[in-house]
Computed example of a mutant assay.
Amino acid sequence: MMNEFVATIRVPEYPPHLKHKVIFETFERLKPGEALLLINDHNPIPLRFQFESMHPGGFTWEYLEEGPDLFQVKIAKK
């Protein structure tokens, strides 16, 4: 079975100034229909708002795990 995700990003492993840069660069490399898995230690709501402003209608956002200590989000390119 193929891996559902092209990339997995464990956000806490990156320094603060690189987090969103790595996430958006990874998203840019996705082909339509591909997805990345975002793993974080808090709810990445600000990131979702940033996606909505930069890629309106161009992505899907699905929580696979919603806290309280671990959040996993499937972000797919439409």
Rank of each mutant, 00 (worst) to 15 (best):
I39V: 15
I39K: 13
I39R: 14
I39F: 01
I39E: 15
N40L: 05
N40F: 04
D41G: 05
D41R: 06
H42N: 10
H42V: 04
N43C: 15
N43K: 15
P44I: 12
P44D: 12
I45W: 10
I45C: 05
I45A: 14
P46K: 11
P46Q: 08
P46E: 07
L47V: 14
R48W: 05
R48I: 08
R48T: 00
R48P: 01
F49P: 00
F49I: 04
F49T: 12
Q50Y: 14
F51E: 09
F51P: 12
F51H: 08
E52H: 11
E52I: 08
S53Y: 13
M54V: 04
H55M: 01
H55G: 04
H55K: 06
P56F: 10
P56S: 11
P56L: 11
G57L: 08
G57E: 03
G57A: 09
G57W: 02
G58N: 15
F59A: 06
F59Y: 15
T60D: 09
T60H: 06
W61C: 03
W61L: 06
E62P: 01
E62T: 14
E65F: 05
E65P: 03
E65L: 13
E65W: 00
E66Q: 12
E66F: 04
E66S: 11
E66W: 00
G67Q: 00
G67L: 05
G67C: 10
P68T: 01
P68S: 08
P68Y: 00
P68R: 04
